[in-house]
């Protein structure tokens, strides 16, 4: 991670932690609305990778706030909206994973921590792989947007693939998170739903599975079998 991005992440951690207490995110006060504005225009001059990093943190800390839309500003197209949700989902999923690991390491049944049971370990491994897939897909979509100078149409292949993959992961990850938490995770009082609730919403927003599968499927069919491989490798 570049030094600039590390600093940005530190700021985001602090700002969003505060936002949890305040109930609102001081996007403008923190200067996040200037994130993608070029330095020459007095902005921060960040790239889409930087935005991805900040939105991951937003997704983990303040998933109920529409942070991404406010950072990007203006009218949000569906592909850009989808990218924002992928980034937030990457963070929310890693946070729900960390919460689940923490929980099974603490909660005791049958005289030992739940995390010592192999069945529990194996489902959390599946969860971790799904979270990893979303994080990698999101980072790659950000890289594609950077390559395309922010033109979402040019990065549509990656955005479609990343959102579709994220949608799929949300189904599996939220189920496992709740399963390992038992009844406590099904309460209003316990914080897990603050992550899983938004995650489930994000699966519908800015294109559900059917929408992106149709769009990406049309692209792939049009390319043909070998053509798809050539396109995938050409895009990087």
């Amino acid at each position: 991670m570049s030094e600039q991005r590390a600093l940005l992440c530190d700021t985001a951690e602090a700002v969003f932690a505060e936002a949890v207490v305040e109930g609102m995110a001081p996007i403008e006060a923190a200067g996040f609305d200037q994130l993608l504005v070029p330095e020459a225009e007095g902005g921060f001059g960040g790239d889409w990778g930087d935005l991805f990093a900040v939105l991951r943190i937003a997704g983990a800390k303040v998933p109920h706030l529409a942070v991404g839309e406010r950072i990007v500003g203006g009218e949000i197209s569906r592909p850009i909206g989808a990218f924002i949700l992928v980034a937030q989902a990457a963070g929310a999923m890693d946070a729900a994973l960390a919460m689940s690991i923490d929980y099974v390491n603490t909660r005791q049944q049958f005289g030992k921590a739940l995390g010592k049971f192999q069945a529990v370990q194996q489902v959390l491994a599946i969860f971790a792989v799904e979270a990893a897939a979303v994080n990698v897909a999101g980072a790659a979509a950000a890289a594609a947007l950077d390559k395309a100078g922010g033109d979402a149409e040019q990065a549509l292949f990656e955005i479609a693939a990343a959102k579709l993959r994220t949608n799929k992961a949300i189904g599996q990850a939220t189920s496992i998170a709740h399963q390992v938490h038992g009844a406590i995770g099904f309460t209003r009082e316990y914080d897990l739903h603050k992550l899983t609730g938004p995650l489930l919403d994000w699966r519908s927003d800015h294109g559900n599975d059917a929408y992106w599968a149709d769009l990406l499927g049309a692209m792939a069919a049009d390319l043909g079998g070998v053509g798809l491989w050539h396109e995938v490798t050409r895009r990087g």
Partner: peptide, 8 residues
């Protein structure tokens, strides 16, 4: 749709 999913 299936091709789209597999591609993703």
């Amino acid at each position: 749709a299936r091709i789209g999913e597999l591609t993703a």
